[in-house]
Design a protein around this nucleic acid. Structure first.
Lengths: 199, 199
DNA sequence: TGTCAACTTTACACAGTGTCAAGAAGGAGA
DNA sequence: TCTCCTTCTTGACACTGTGTAAAGTTGACA
């Protein structure tokens, strides 16, 4: 089923991507995306039978184009304390690139089971990255002994949520650089051993 | 316009409150609330002409019943470092009580201007509480000198977001006590002068 | 020439919000 | 008692957006 009609599918996905990025305060409709892609709404439904499946395919497409796997994998090369910074830079730098579609997913989560599951999966993948970074800290003896690995992972994962990025950059007006620096500082203050902190 | 028909209005608001609290993963419809209140959907529209106005009235009603103003005001009595803990306890303890309606507002923000404005106002009020707590820290000489008052307020406000409460308690399974303790610890680690920390 | 896949146009079902109009029920005052 | 007024009810309908269905067009390919 997969390798058919790549040009149209790609037109749909880039249109979806563009619309989602460009619409801060209004929901993007399936018809809008079809129009942007230059096809009829029904042609779009031929390729993606529900809005949720369209969003899921779009998210995968963005991941592929933006090379998320490689970027996160690269952050795994760092060791010990540096690993924390590297992961925050990698994921924190990716958030603005998926914020458009992330908004669409988060808005849809309340009513659509498929969307909830898909977004949940993505967030679990981020959590695994957090867990790996925490494990690296622990192995370097740098983890704050107040926290279990799980609790530390929970905290890092929460600090790195898309919603926190949204609040700090959009609501508070922080620049992306402010956000990354601020989050790194926050994570270090919370998670490193008091003796091992360098703030 | 205001003092008419209190019994019906109160029935509507308590019905809305109950429905919003009881529905974790499905949107509450105006008709559901009317049925729960024992009146027709149209009678409800007679009192609250839009869904947003109904939610706003419900939020105000909950505030009144739960005495939010007094509870937050009480936290203002604490001074210096204790003020931070007191505010986190007060607001952090209030979040679960408004989570149901908060979810409804947050879901509606993307499409409804009135809902966005109303929820934004509430969050700004919380931000003022954060700012006051930060100012108290600063005046006690306890604020981490790395942060301006504004930056520190941004951070505390973000730590105390409803979304963070949601992620830690619902997604990560923290108890309410875990949440309050964890957030206090996090806020102290981030915001207090390194020399003044007691973690 | 015939067939097939992709696409178009048009129409409709469904859910939820909000509007409109006609009327029932009951209390207040003449 | 009659009338007025408010509150509520019933039923119908407009509008938006998602998703389904069906019939027709177009171009490639054999």
């Amino acid at each position: 089923m997969s390798r058919k009609n790549l040009p149209t599918r790609e037109a749909i996905l880039t249109a979806a991507w563009k619309m989602l990025e460009a619409s801060p305060h209004k929901a993007v409709r399936v018809g809008d995306i079809a129009k942007e892609a230059g096809i009829s709404r029904q042609a779009l439904y031929l390729h993606y039978p529900t809005r949720a499946e369209l969003l899921i395919a779009t998210a995968r497409y963005i991941d592929e184009v933006k090379n998320i796997d490689e970027r996160l994998a690269a952050s795994r090369a760092a060791t010990g304390i540096n690993r924390l910074d590297a992961f925050i830079e990698a994921w924190g730098g990716y958030i603005p690139e998926i914020y458009g579609i992330g908004r669409a997913f988060m808005a849809m989560m309340d009513t659509d089971e498929a969307a909830r599951a898909a977004w949940g999966d993505r967030m679990q993948a981020v959590r695994h990255g957090c867990a790996a970074a925490i494990r690296a800290l622990k192995e370097a003896g740098a983890l704050n002994p107040d926290y279990s690995e799980t609790a530390a992972t929970d905290i890092l994962w929460t600090l790195l949520s898309v919603r926190n990025w949204e609040q700090l950059t959009i609501d508070c007006g922080w620049s992306q650089a402010d956000y990354v620096e601020g989050t790194k500082r926050l994570a270090r203050a919370a998670l490193l051993q008091p003796s091992g902190r360098k703030d």
